[in-house]
């Protein structure tokens, strides 16, 4: 199609952003941050039936220094929040956070003194995954959506522009209690 057909075979044209995105998403290594019930579902999705290895993600790196993705799986208590932040800070860039389960996304059913009501109070979250606990298929769906996001994220000046645009959208967005319409 177009230019590529006129070149000799074995040459592929693409952009740096696409290549970088492809590399990053294809071997995204998760850091073990399993806390509670969601951790068990996360381990199951790394297990033989729901195999995360097909996405290059079965190596759960114990050391955050070697990990790209922090899957916050489970309820984050007030005592654990500083530890969560420290692990996040120890991860090198580029890093992404997937908050798995309702307890990590919003405090879940535990609306009380002991649980941080959403890990986005502590770390910036890239993708939220509801469920109590989410099925391994749901986790994989969230991971694939995150892969999509990574594939299409921009670099350099484009990135700064993208961040500014997103910030503008968030600043002018309606708060949830003022929204109307169906849940989706």
């Amino acid at each position: 199609m177009g230019l590529e057909e006129k070149l000799p075979s074995g040459v592929l044209l693409t952009t740096v952003e696409q290549v970088a995105g492809y590399m990053r998403k294809s071997s995204l290594w998760p850091a073990t941050f399993g806390l509670a019930c969601c951790a068990i579902e996360m381990m199951s999705s790394g297990g033989p039936r729901y195999d995360l290895g097909r996405f290059g993600m079965e190596v759960f790196r114990a050391s955050p220094r070697q990990a790209d993705l922090m899957v916050v799986a489970g309820r984050v208590s007030q005592k654990m929040a500083p530890v969560l932040r420290q692990i996040y800070d120890q991860m090198p860039n580029p890093k992404w956070v997937l908050s798995m389960g309702v307890c990590a996304s919003s405090g879940g059913m535990f609306n009380n003194y002991a649980i941080v009501q959403g890990v986005d109070h502590v770390v910036p979250v890239d993708i939220y995954l509801p469920g109590c606990p989410p099925r391994p298929e749901m986790l994989m769906d969230a991971i694939l959506k995150l892969h999509d996001q990574i594939q299409h994220s921009k670099l350099g000046a484009n990135r700064e522009r993208q961040v500014e645009e997103r910030e503008q959208i968030a600043l002018t967005a309606l708060p949830t209690s003022a929204m109307k319409g169906l849940l989706r």
Binding site: Q117, M179, K180
Partner: peptide, 22 residues
Amino acid sequence: PQRKDYPLGGIPVEYKGAEIPP
């Protein structure tokens, strides 16, 4: 925390069009 005079400590939850108290 588990004394009766200690509050449960929740926050109000926002839904579309409503806010539910803790």
